[in-house]
Amino acid sequence: MAALSPPEDFGWTPDQPLIRLVDVRKSFGAIEVLKGVSLDVAKGEAICIIGPSGSGKSTLIRCINALVPIDSGTIRVEGQEVNDPDLDKLALRRKVGMVFQQYNLFPHRTALDNIMMAPLHVLKQDRREVEARARALMAKVRLAGKEKAYPGELSGGQQQRVAIARALAMRPDVMLFDEVTAALDPETVKEVLLTIRELAEEGMTCILVTHEMGFAREVADHIYFTDAGVIVEHGPPASFFDDPRDPRTQAFLGQIL
């Protein structure tokens, strides 16, 4: 592991969009999944990406932290170009936290260890400080007392909240949520959504892919609707949900609501 480079300045100032996507394209073999997607996310904003299955939502947010390389277009995170062959992926991922549908906790370590691992091994921070922060995060996601539990001993909702705390422990500037409630029982969905909402209200920049329309309406500052690899329509929740313009949006919302 190379020594950590000091955060680079890419000439970005807080008044510019924290994340900017311009004409992003991505194909898997012959299938074009993203056909030119552009969007901006300002600092402290929460946006929701909604749309039918297979519309490219999950790929879109995986592109933002370079889990999936894009074919063409531009993605900038705090001014740093993600589609740059010389990109320091690790530096990017320290700024971008991600939570997955399947939680993906490390089953061989306890909940507290899961939260502490990356700050200790990646950021090389002081153990005592990291542990204090991890315990505070456990309390924040309402799991105080479960520090010693292994992922296999926790419910889906509890695991997902540990996963959120794990991502937060890196002190990211933006959080990506990939259908984080899709694999959960209906009863436990609420506790996870509550955690995310608190996060958004505290001013964390959040990008959410979700099927929970009610939640999207309450939490999001801006809604993007994707279909077949393009953004069909976007706008503030009130106008988006109450007055959709595009027939595809109308059809989708008609099926769901």
Partner: peptide, 24 residues
């Protein structure tokens, strides 16, 4: 998902291998 999660936490490939994958 284990690889993805480790990657998104900025673990290097070597760290992912030795700290996350091999112990499991």
């Amino acid at each position: 998902g284990q690889w993805e999660a480790a990657e998104s936490l900025a673990f290097s490939r070597r760290q992912t291998m030795w700290r996350i994958i091999l112990p499991q």
